[in-house]
C-alpha cells in the first residue's frame, strides 16, 4: 500500500541511571495520505516519544522513518507539530506566532502576513491577530498553535495530546473544528491521545499501544460514517472494544 508516512522497525532506548530504558521496541505503523490516525495507549507507553522521533526532535536508536518515500533526518518544516503544553511564544502576538515558520522560510513580509491571516481565520480567531498569548484562553491558544503548525504547509501534522489541558466543553468544540480543518486542508494527521472518546470521535484508524517497551497491539479502522455522533450506538460499541483492548493490556502489565 502507498503510505504517506511509514515507521519501520523503530526502536528507541534512553540511557538512564538505572541502565537502559526501552521506550519503543521495533515499532511498525503506516499512515495513508490524508488519513487521520489516532495513537492511543496508557501513560508512558512511548506515544510522545514516537511523535518526537517523527518530528525529528529525537533520533531513533534503530529503524527508519520514511515520509513521502524519503528517510527522515532531523526536524524540518515538512512536519508540523502541536504540543501538549502551551508552546506559543509568549513574546509574540498571535500573528507573529503564526508567521514564525514563514519567517524562517525567508518569505516576504506581506506574503507571510497574508498567509498567516488566512490560517488565523481558518481556526476562527480573526480579530485576535494582535493579542498576546496571555490574553487568550487555553482553547484559543491551542487554535493558534494549530494555525502556526499548518501555516508553513507541512505534509503531515503531528499532534501530541493537544487538547489535554482544556476543559471538556472546549475540548469538544476544538475536536469539531479540527475535523473541519482536516476536511478542508486534506492534511495527514497523526494524533496522540489517551482519551478513548477522542480517538473514536476523530480517527479514521486507531493504533493501540502497549507500555514499556512501547509496541503496537492493535490497529483498527473506525468505519463510523462522518459526521459522527458522540453518543451513537456504533461509537459506543467501538469505545467498548477499545476499552477492552486497553484493559487487557493493563492486566498483562499487572501480572
Amino acid at each position: 500500500m502507498n503510505h504517506k508516512l511509514e515507521i519501520r522497525d523503530v526502536t528507541k532506548t534512553f540511557k538512564t541511571e538505572e541502565g537502559e530504558l526501552m521506550a519503543l521496541d521495533r515499532f511498525n505503523v503506516g499512515v495513508k495520505p490524508s488519513e487521520f490516525l489516532c495513537i492511543i495507549g496508557p501513560s508512558g507507553c512511548g506515544k510522545s516519544t514516537l511523535l518526537r522521533l517523527i518530528a525529528g526532535l529525537d533520533e531513533p536508536s534503530s529503524g527508519a522513518i520514511i515520509l513521502d518515500g524519503k528517510e527522515l533526518k532531523g526536524p524540518s518544516p515538512d512536519r508540523g507539530m502541536v504540543f501538549q503544553e502551551y508552546s506559543l511564544f509568549p513574546w509574540r502576538t498571535v500573528l507573529k506566532n503564526v508567521t514564525f515558520g514563514l519567517e524562517l522560510q525567508k518569505m516576504e513580509k506581506q506574503e507571510r502576513y497574508r498567509i498567516a491571516k488566512e490560517y488565523i481565520e481558518l481556526v476562527g480567531l480573526k480579530g485576535f491577530e494582535n493579542m498576546y498569548p496571555y490574553e487568550l484562553s487555553g482553547g484559543m491558544k491551542q487554535r493558534v498553535a494549530i494555525a502556526r503548525a499548518i501555516a508553513p504547509e507541512p505534509s503531515i501534522l503531528l499532534m501530541d495530546e493537544p487538547f489535554g489541558s482544556v476543559d471538556a466543553q472546549t475540548r469538544n468544540v476544538l475536536q469539531e473544528e479540527l475535523l473541519e480543518i482536516w476536511q478542508r486542508t486534506k492534511k495527514t494527521i497523526l494524533f496522540v491521545t489517551h482519551s478513548v472518546d477522542e480517538a473514536v470521535y476523530l480517527a479514521d484508524r486507531v493504533a493501540v499501544m502497549t507500555a514499556r517497551p512501547g509496541n503496537l497491539i492493535k490497529c483498527a479502522s473506525i468505519d463510523i460514517p462522518r459526521p459522527r455522533k458522540r453518543t451513537s450506538v456504533e461509537a459506543n460499541e467501538f469505545r467498548e472494544k477499545l476499552l477492552m483492548w486497553l484493559s487487557l493490556e493493563r492486566s498483562k502489565v499487572q501480572d
Binding site: 525529528g56 532531523g74 508552546s87 514564525f100 515558520g101 502556526r148
Partner: peptide, 21 residues
C-alpha cells in the same frame, strides 16, 4: 517546549535559536 516548537518550525541553527527564542 519553545526550543522544540521553534525547531519543528524550521529553526535549527543555534544562532537562530538564540536570537529568536
Amino acid at each position: 517546549t519553545y526550543i522544540d516548537a521553534a525547531k519543528v518550525l524550521g529553526c535549527e541553527k543555534e544562532s537562530k535559536l538564540i536570537r529568536l527564542v
